[in-house]
Each structure stands twice: as structure tokens, then as C-alpha cells.
């Protein structure tokens, strides 16, 4: 250990850096390898139908994704509303 790190505190231990990198990577790769549940396209279609009754949105404005964080599955619905000024 150099004198500098001795006085100014040590860098984070490499093992914890490794663990953090791996936990992100593994979570990402696991979700990528999982087949998307087959209800997602239907859900997306129906959401578009319902929302377009009230707001003028197109199919591309609605993104439906199933993700995983820790032990929870997260259904993420992202709707981009059209610009009001138009």
C-alpha cells in the first residue's frame, strides 16, 4: 500500500467491486435469456385501444416491459403522450 492511500483512505476493495459488477451483469443476462411472457403483446394492443379512446397515441408510444429487480417482477408501462401544443 502506498503512502498516499495510507493517508487519504484506501480504495474500495476489489472483491466488492467484483460482486457489484457481477450482480448487475447476471441480473441483466438472466432477464435477457428469459422468454417474454406471451401476454405482453396482447396487453400492449389492448392498452393502445383503451388509451387511444381518450388520447391520440400510436402503437409506438406505448412500451410494455417485464423486468426483474431483486425478487420482484416489475411490469413497466411507458406511455408517451402527444405534445399538447399540436
Amino acid at each position: 500500500m502506498s503512502l498516499l492511500t495510507y493517508f487519504f483512505g484506501s480504495k474500495p476493495k476489489t472483491a466488492s467491486v467484483a460482486k457489484e459488477r457481477l450482480s448487475l451483469l447476471i441480473a441483466h443476462e438472466r432477464s435477457a435469456n428469459q422468454p417474454t411472457p406471451d401476454f405482453l403483446p396482447a396487453l400492449q394492443r389492448e392498452l393502445i385501444e383503451v388509451i387511444s379512446k381518450y388520447v391520440n397515441v400510436s402503437a409506438d408510444d406505448i412500451q410494455v416491459q417485464l423486468g426483474k429487480r431483486d425478487n420482484y417482477e416489475i411490469l413497466e408501462v411507458d406511455i408517451t403522450l402527444p405534445d399538447q401544443s399540436k
Binding site: K13, T14, A15, S16, A18, K19, L22, S23, I26
Partner: peptide, 17 residues
């Protein structure tokens, strides 16, 4: 090396996998 924070511990690997 685990003790010195240079190597993943068996608990870490177990937790990850």
C-alpha cells in the same frame, strides 16, 4: 485473499448464483 478483500467470498458467489 478473501479476508483482505481481494477475492469474492464463497458467500458472495453463492448469493450471486
Amino acid at each position: 485473499r478473501v479476508e483482505e478483500g481481494e477475492m469474492l467470498s464463497y458467500k458472495d458467489v453463492h448469493e450471486l448464483l
